[in-house]
Design a binder for these strands. Structure first.
Lengths: 223, 223, 223, 223
DNA sequence: AATGAATGAGTTTTCATTCAT
DNA sequence: TATGAATGAAAACTCATTCAT
């Protein structure tokens, strides 16, 4: 199963990352100062990840960019992986915000309008921070975030399925789960490619054509 | 643009890996013994990559598994990246073999038969060595292989486009490039998901359903 | 010279630990609350030392176990070493309490009764907290406690010597200092071994045999 | 049970050192160069241990003193502990050499001569490198060498027991194991104290007195 | 007084790569 | 050519101690 967003590492074949170091922030960072430090660290990690890639993203470098000591880094994050995991979480939540909103807005629309909206949102979601998106996608198997990502995927699947169910009369006879899988996969694939192929360079016109065609593809399939 | 196979890192946005060490084999491996050594090294790299992941795949370990000294490794490959690049090449060639053959076989078939065949082959290609596939997919941005992968993608695009062109009369009016992109993206996405979701565990029956549905999706779109 | 208790690092050969941080409690802990805090810290240190060993016993951990902030820890103890020193002191005092009492009780007894009592007490002293005993023994050279331990040793030597002197008529002719050294060493050695060899597992019967034999050994030597 | 040499940490109560990193040299160091490197490392470790104590003995420092790179250190020793273990082994073997030889020489001597010899050798053994002896004694619980040390202790016990058995007619009736334990403990204790109390400063005369008295102590006990 | 966030020097360990043999 | 010992920069992580609040 795969979502609108390409973190879709829902495979179970990856040698489970030896989870020696835990992956959740050490304290709740209730105090304002702590909170600021944690935020600075997550932000710095995202930046370094984008600018220099995962291997160059050393904890010392991240701490430096965050304007904080390594010691502080390890006060809040027990390992480098935990830091990356936090970035992934943040990014995922941004994306899920978009997607959830879209699915609510779409609830009462007919299938063609709805699909068009979803395709558009999927592309937008991929555009939030494509470079970060890529680096994170590569790192998900290592951070033990697979479960979370799968949870998001399941959520999206469930939401889409619910929508389709409410519109069953507009559709031909299909197994709803299969149809959902096909829709989600397809939309995600096109969005992924669209954005990764030059992201910012794509003219609005071409994007429009892609949205049109993808909508036609999916709607044609459902009706 | 994206191919049937998920090496689709055809984005130009990745900061080109500082190409300190070259990436092509040092010698042509003309002698038989050399050839054997090179093969052993590439094979060992693939194995280690699959078994232990990229970070654990040290050159010393690879040499050891290949039954060769590190010194010899560096006789044939100027850097670790070159070694990984060779593995990627080999894997890509295996996949492209399948795809090229399929596209030849399909040349005279009507669209529905052809699409079904292509979907099937895409899934097979993803099944060749899924674990290796994953590790390589993660590592491609780091080696200098993006160009090569894009070349494969372009080749596939060209082949599919050529096929579609020859079948234009069966199709509705569309921009051929857009249609090709949509087809290739879609087929790839479904194959990718299918295989990575439990790979070997998927029952043949479910696979058949997916092939049916994907075929219907694509054919419906083209006609 | 060595005492009944195996803290006998009375060697002067150890490069005196660079005494950067002082080793005495910062304040006299006059207030009740302060006193409680100090006690909690010493107790926590002992516990951590026993449970996790010296390397794992970080000041932060100790403070946490004591239910106090690190800041407070440093309010009362200027360094980690001072903390360990306090634990050593406390443990030494416990032991010396036993030993002093025994030597008073023994004052009017004949040599064989007295030696038997001392052997018994030595074993008891080693049994107070064998694990702590060990860890402390390992760490004494590092704290500045050697002087203190030597003082205890000297005290024991003096007490035993005084007793022997008062019983000279029961003994053969010997140099009193040599005889004292031999007695103290011997009793301590057997007690040390007895306890450290399985401590709590030694059956009372075996302990009794050891007490009997050690008494015979020492008494035989003195008479 | 305890031997003539004070490595006698034969207690089973120490929390078994988490044996994450193995403790045996990685390769057999057959080549001459390797051998030299290994020797240099062990020697450097011993030196650093004596001069700066365990905590200051960092692997980088040891490598530097050995005139070798850290990398080489880790080529031959998988961890700092393994290095210390090697030093312990070497030291133990030196000591056992002395002890074994003495016990052979002593085989046909009467008890008083034999005991005198053993006391002398015990003191000599402790004098080989008293500072190193101390540091190692402190570190043995951490290195997982307890088993080895216990093996040495058992060997000594067995050898002494065998000797006593062959001289039974000279002795009063005793349980041989108890007698052996008492002898070994006693001799060790005196040697330990003698050496650690100023080692080199002890006049030969005082040493002689101690040897005399200890011999009398033990012989008096056995007869 | 107490707190606990912050510090950063220092530690262990890894691994791509070189080069003497 | 092949070997594998040696290298050393760099990475992840710890912890005694300080100091603003």
């Amino acid at each position: 199963m795969r979502a609108f967003t390409r973190f879709s590492y829902s495979h179970s074949d990856h040698k489970a990352v030896a989870r020696k170091p835990p992956t959740k922030p050490r304290k709740n960072a209730s105090q304002a100062r702590s909170r600021a430090t944690v935020d600075a660290l997550v932000e710095a990690t995202a930046r370094v990840l984008v600018r220099e890639g995962f291997e160059k993203a050393s904890t010392n470098r991240i701490a430096e960019i965050a304007g904080v000591s390594v010691g502080s880094l390890y006060q809040y994050f027990p390992s480098k992986e935990a830091l990356v995991a936090a970035v992934i979480d943040r990014h995922n939540e941004e994306i899920m915000g978009l997607v959830r909103t879209a699915l609510i807005e779409v609830a009462d629309l007919p299938i063609d309008k709805a699909v068009r909206k979803l395709v558009t949102v999927a592309i937008e979601a991929h555009r939030i921070n494509p470079k970060l998106h890529r680096v994170l996608a590569e790192q998900i198997p290592r951070t033990g975030q697979l479960r979370d990502v799968e949870a998001y995927n399941r959520e999206i699947h469930a939401l889409v399925r619910a929508y389709l169910e409410s519109r069953r009369k507009e559709m031909r006879k299909v197994d709803l789960d299969v149809a959902t899988l096909i829709c989600v996969s397809t939309i995600e694939a096109v969005a992924h490619n669209t954005v990764l192929n030059g992201a910012e360079m794509l003219s609005e016109k071409i994007v429009k054509v892609l949205v049109d065609e993808t909508t036609r593809l999916v709607v044609g399939y459902l009706k």
